[in-house]
């Protein structure tokens, strides 16, 4: 019970202190508009909103979760307030789950902001909302744990941003979000299949447009493996580097 009280209050504190701040809310609103506008400018005509929706949703989650988590943890490390959490009588796994749950929720909310826009612009009938939600949750969890891995690997907030981009920019172009993987040069196509976002975006493509190319069950398994792996490496690194 004590651990649950701690978990809940860490989550609430993070939501209040970081995720529900006006700049972050406005970022979540502006980001999908920017991407949609970019496609509109690029095509020069009417765009297939439903076609780009899975990509915009996946990117909203990826950027939202990795940016927020890596910066907030690095910031708390710098101010030494993170030490306060490490000294609390809760397990490291539960502590890190509490710290990451806020980012996961932030990512999930970010994912549905483009859906809200799309509701006004196109017909969203026939979408498998259950599978869409599952896909969004899995992408949010994996991306958040990637953010955690980044936060544990750096010591400064600017390093966190730079290191995040090292993962994010290749994912933007190689995960089939806007350019089908089949259209990529054969030599770099294997790279697409080692990036977790490929599998997450594919689940949403299945659910929204029935356009996925990977069996959803396999995608869920790969994302689960990535999530467990990234979380394990991150907590291992915390024990090694921060509880020295």
């Amino acid at each position: 019970m004590n651990a649950l009280i701690a978990f809940w209050n860490i989550l609430l504190k993070d939501m209040k202190t970081y995720y529900l701040k006006p700049p972050n809310i406005s970022w979540g609103i502006i980001f999908p508009i920017s991407w949609t506008l970019m496609f509109f400018v690029r095509s020069g005509s009417a765009i297939d909103i439903r076609g780009i929706l899975p990509g915009v949703m996946a990117l909203s989650i990826l950027f939202g979760t990795t940016s927020m988590l890596s910066v907030t943890i690095t910031f708390e490390r710098r101010s030494r307030s993170f030490e306060r959490l490490l000294l609390a009588p809760i397990s490291l796994n539960l502590l890190m789950l509490a710290k990451t749950t806020g980012a996961i929720l932030f990512g999930i909310i970010n994912a549905f902001i483009p859906v809200l826009y799309a509701l006004f612009l196109t017909d969203l009938a026939g979408i498998n909302w259950g599978a869409t939600l599952l896909g969004v949750i899995f992408i949010a969890v994996t991306s958040t744990f990637l953010g955690l891995f980044i936060a544990v690997s750096v010591s400064e907030a600017f390093e966190a941003q730079t290191f995040s981009n090292f993962f994010r920019f290749p994912m933007m172009f190689l995960c089939g979000l806007f350019i089908p993987i089949g259209n990529l040069p054969a030599a770099i196509r294997p790279l697409s299949y080692i990036m977790p976002l490929t599998y997450g975006a594919d689940i949403i493509k299945h659910a929204i447009n029935r356009a996925g190319i990977i069996t959803p069950g396999l995608s869920f398994l790969v994302l689960l493996a990535y999530s467990i792996g990234l979380f394990w490496i991150s907590t291992f690194n915390i024990k090694r580097k921060w509880i020295y």
């Binding site: 004590n2 209050n9 860490i10 306060r84 959490l85 009588p89 809760i90």
Partner: peptide
């Protein structure tokens, strides 16, 4: 070094710290 949360009030900091111990 005083390592409480800058953004939280004194009261909220204390309440949060107590919650870490399951109060």
């Amino acid at each position: 070094e005083s390592n409480l949360y800058d953004e939280l009030s004194g009261y909220d900091n204390l309440v949060f710290c107590a919650s870490l111990y399951g109060v």
